[in-house]
């Protein structure tokens, strides 16, 4: 074996670089921990923890269904409705963004790069802050939550959709162009059939995420089960906290199961 070949086989480790990373990590941790003042734990903490667990095991069953009143089922249904409608809106609105950001559909690298940046901007804008802004526009309630999820989810769905479009086979597009189809017909007959299942699957996935998000929106008054949970927490009604938490856990689990099943069926 030649000298050069033997050298090439040795794993070349950048020792200095590695130590640099270790040092940087150490500094980050020193900074992070020294900046935290030791938290003083309220003497009641243990008591409250016990109460919450107590509440979990003795949930306020009466709250599950209270005809005419604001009950658990009502809150959960509201949460699901917010998630479903928000997901639908974003799945529709993100399609043009996805084609804008897809490198093989946009005219030039600059265009798709801008599209990608816009999507990552939307993704980073916290949905709770969006919800606060929509509350200013349409008042507190579920509708503000729907709009916030609908706008925020564009960021992630648009990115996933655009990746689906980028991974598409361009052959059928060319074949359709050769038959004399116009742009829209090419899109409809060669592009959409290829990407639609991916789009649906990602939409369901985002729906799973949005159900969790919708359960939180109530914290700032944008509808859903979060509002009664915050009320129960502040009024220290632990049995009610328990039943609401159980409700959320059951709802999210069931939705994950159904959505996962559907996603497996689609592909």
């Amino acid at each position: 074996m030649s000298e050069a070949a033997r050298k090439g086989m040795k794993p070349k480790k950048n020792r200095a670089g590695l130590w640099g990373i270790y040092l940087a990590l150490a500094l980050i941790y020193i900074w992070a921990f020294s900046g935290m003042n030791l938290p003083e734990i309220k003497p009641t903490a243990g008591q409250i923890t016990k109460s919450i667990f107590n509440g979990m095991f003795h949930p306020d069953w009466d709250y599950v269904s209270d005809p005419g009143g604001e009950d658990l089922l009502h809150g959960l249904l509201d949460t699901l409705a917010i998630a479903a409608l928000g997901t639908f809106i974003s799945a529709v609105l993100c399609v043009p963004f996805a084609f804008w950001a897809a490198a093989n559909m946009s005219k030039g690298k600059a265009a798709s790069g801008t599209g990608k940046f816009v999507l990552s901007f939307i993704r980073t804008f916290p949905e709770l802050v969006m919800a606060i802004m929509f509350i200013k526009a349409v008042g507190p309630g579920s509708f503000a939550g729907v709009l916030a999820l609908g706008l925020h989810s564009i960021g992630m769905l648009g990115k996933l959709f655009s990746e689906e479009v980028e991974n598409m086979d361009l052959g059928p597009t060319e074949a359709l162009m050769a038959t004399g189809a116009n742009r829209f017909q090419i899109l409809w007959f060669a592009v959409i059939p290829q990407v639609i299942t991916g789009f649906l699957s990602y939409t369901l996935y985002r729906f799973e995420i949005n159900v969790r998000s919708a359960a939180v929106l109530g914290v700032i008054g944008a509808g859903g089960i979060g509002t009664p949970l915050i009320f129960a927490l502040t009024s220290r009604d632990w049995n009610r906290v328990g039943i609401i938490l159980l409700g959320i856990i059951v709802m999210v689990t069931v939705i994950d199961l159904i959505s996962g099943y559907l996603r497996r069926k689609i592909v």
Partner: peptide, 25 residues
């Protein structure tokens, strides 16, 4: 009409729909 080495059919569509796509023009 054009015929390609890699067929260039829309794989997820039915045969009929692929053939009909020749008519869209």
């Amino acid at each position: 009409g054009m015929i390609f080495q890699s067929f260039n059919l829309v794989k997820r569509s039915t045969v009929l729909r692929n053939v009909l796509s020749g008519r869209v023009g």
